[in-house]
Structures are given as structure tokens and as C-alpha cells.
């Protein structure tokens, strides 16, 4: 029975647009986007514990590729090109940092979005002479929602597949002890690179799919680093090394921050900060692991 639960859930979500208002659909798109982002982030960072702070570098690149190409190429081709560019970017970043200790990777990803933003801004101002582009695509909000939902399903499916195969085991070993991993025959750089590129490709695609919602795109809008930070805290809160953990963290946090940004914009960063600190101290392995621990304690107490 439990095996069919994800399929039933997917169908319910797929039917949701028929039951909600336009505003509700907008919220749904946002929530599913963050489910995709958090799950894709955890695909690499969840087990390896290499904290990537560059989600929006890929997400924004995806959106920007659509903005540049949407008038000249068919939509499907644009998506493929966006995915390829994201993969290539991840390959470059990974090749230069993943052979080194985790902290170099964190630092590099910390500034990557800002770097990409500056480079694109400079290019647009100096070479093309325009800053800001329009996306006029014949894609409805419902279509965007369904595409994003499909991407979320693919991401979670891919994660489940990886968890059950060699790559998943290799990533878990790397997260525990890289020296042991290497001495057990695991090629460190290649394994990390593979997972990072897969993760980044999905992040880029998510940006490309979401982009028509913006209509007007410029670097300062699409490379908003809050996206990166929200993604990290969502995955960590739910449990980044669990299959459903990131999704479980993404949905409530998306609505919580949506509420905060409308009603209490000034306290938004304070809440985000306290949440990070609370997760590290109280739920270091996420809510799912926390619940399991409580259950185990309750069982032992009852027996």
C-alpha cells in the first residue's frame, strides 16, 4: 500500500490546478518549485555534507538562458540548452573545487551566484547594451505547474534510484569519511562530480521552467541569493539525507516565508537566522530523524 502513496499523491497534486484560484495556483507553483530545488540540492549535498550555497547561480542561469533564447528557438530546445549549460557550469565548478576539502567548495559556492550576476550584468551592459529582457512565451500557469511537478517527481524518483544503487552508497561513505572511501576503492572526484552535475542540471531546469512567470528578467532579479539560502534550510529542516525530507521541509517553510515576506518583511532575515541556528542545535539530522528518535525513546519507555 505504501508503495502507491507517492503515485496517489502525485495524481492529487496534478489535479490540484482545477480546484484552486489563480492566486492559489501561484502559491502551488512556488511550493513545488522549492520542493524541486530542495530535493535536487539534497541529491548532492544531503549525503556528502558538501554544503552548496549556489542554488540560485544555477536556477538563475536557467531563467536567463530562457530570457536570451525564447524569441529565437523553440521552447523544448531552449530547455535542453539550459540544462546543458547548467551541467557545464557545474562541471567547471566541480572540477576546480571538489578535489579539495569541503570548505573550499562552500566558500566558492558562497560567491558563485554573485559572480555570475556580475559577469552577465557586465556582458549585457558592455556587449549587448541592454540590461533586462522580456520573456513572451505561450506557456500558461497550469503548464508551468505541471512541468515543475513533473520535474519534482523526476528529482525524487532519481534520488530514490540513487539511494538504492552504488552511487548512493558511495555518497554516504564520502559524507562519513573520505579517506576510508578512497581506500575502499571509491573514486572521490568522479563520484562527487557526477552527483553535483546531476543536482545542478535539475536546478537549472527548474529556473528555466519557472522563468515565464517573471515576464521581465534582469540579473538582479533572477540571482536573488535568498533562493539559495531557503533551499538549504528547507532541505536541512526536513532531513537532507532522507528521500522525502527536503520536500517535507520545503512545503511548510515556503508558506511560512511567503507569509513573513508579505506581513513582516523586516523580521524575515531574523526568523531565517534563528531557524538555521535552531536546526543545527536541535534537529541536526532534520525533522524526520528527530521524530524517529522520539518514537524509539517512547517505545523503550513503554516497554
Amino acid at each position: 500500500m505504501r508503495r502507491y502513496l507517492p503515485i496517489v499523491g502525485f495524481l492529487v497534486f496534478a489535479a490540484a490546478p482545477f480546484a484552486v484560484s489563480d492566486y492559489g495556483l501561484g502559491l502551488l507553483i512556488g511550493a513545488v518549485t522549492y520542493v524541486t530545488l530542495a530535493s535536487a540540492w539534497a541529491l548532492f549535498s544531503g549525503h556528502t555534507r558538501y554544503i552548496s550555497l549556489a542554488t540560485v547561480a544555477f536556477y538563475g542561469t536557467g531563467a536567463y538562458v530562457v530570457a536570451v533564447l525564447n524569441e529565437t528557438l523553440p521552447y523544448g530546445l531552449v530547455l535542453i540548452i539550459a540544462a546543458l549549460i547548467g551541467a557545464l557550469m557545474a562541471l567547471l565548478v566541480g572540477l576546480s573545487t571538489l578535489r579539495l576539502a569541503g570548505v573550499y567548495f562552500v566558500i566558492f559556492t558562497f560567491g558563485l551566484a554573485e559572480l555570475v550576476r556580475q559577469l552577465i550584468t557586465w556582458y549585457e551592459v558592455n556587449v549587448t547594451g541592454t540590461l533586462g529582457r522580456y520573456i513572451f512565451l505561450d506557456v500558461t500557469a497550469r503548464e508551468i505547474y505541471w512541468q515543475m511537478l513533473a520535474l519534482a517527481a523526476v528529482t525524487i524518483g532519481l534520488t530514490a534510484f540513487i539511494h538504492r544503487h552504488r552511487l548512493g552508497l558511495a555518497l554516504r561513505v564520502i559524507g562519513d569519511d573520505e579517506v576510508v572511501a578512497a581506500h575502499a576503492g571509491i573514486p572521490l572526484a568522479r563520484t562527487k562530480l557526477l552527483a553535483f552535475v546531476a543536482s545542478a542540471t535539475i536546478l537549472t531546469l527548474a529556473g528555466a521552467i519557472a522563468s515565464p512567470r517573471w515576464v521581465y528578467v534582469e540579473p538582479a532579479i533572477v540571482f536573488n541569493s535568498t533562493v539559495s539560502f531557503l533551499t538549504v534550510i528547507m532541505a536541512l529542516l526536513g532531513g537532507a539525507n532522507r528521500l522525502w525530507g527536503p520536500a517535507l521541509g520545503a512545503v511548510p517553510l515556503f508558506f511560512a516565508f511567503e507569509y513573513l515576506s508579505v506581513n513582516l518583511p523586516n523580521t524575515y532575515p531574523i526568523v531565517l537566522g534563528l531557524l538555521f541556528i535552531a536546526v543545527v542545535f536541535v534537529l541536526p539530522d532534520g525533522v524526520l530523524a528527530g521524530i524517529e528518535k522520539l518514537r524509539a525513546r517512547w517505545k523503550r519507555g513503554a516497554a
Binding site: I51, L53, V103, V106, F229, V232, L236, N266, T267, Y268, P269, I270, V271, L272, G273, L274, L275, F276, I277, A278, V279, V280, F281
Partner: peptide, 14 residues
């Protein structure tokens, strides 16, 4: 890294 990341937002918010 995660704890000081939280601190970053906390101080920035304040």
C-alpha cells in the same frame, strides 16, 4: 558553517 550562516541572517536582520 550552518550555525554562523544562521548568525549571518540574525545579525543582518537586527
Amino acid at each position: 558553517i550552518l550555525a554562523t550562516f544562521g548568525l549571518l541572517f540574525l545579525i543582518q536582520g537586527l
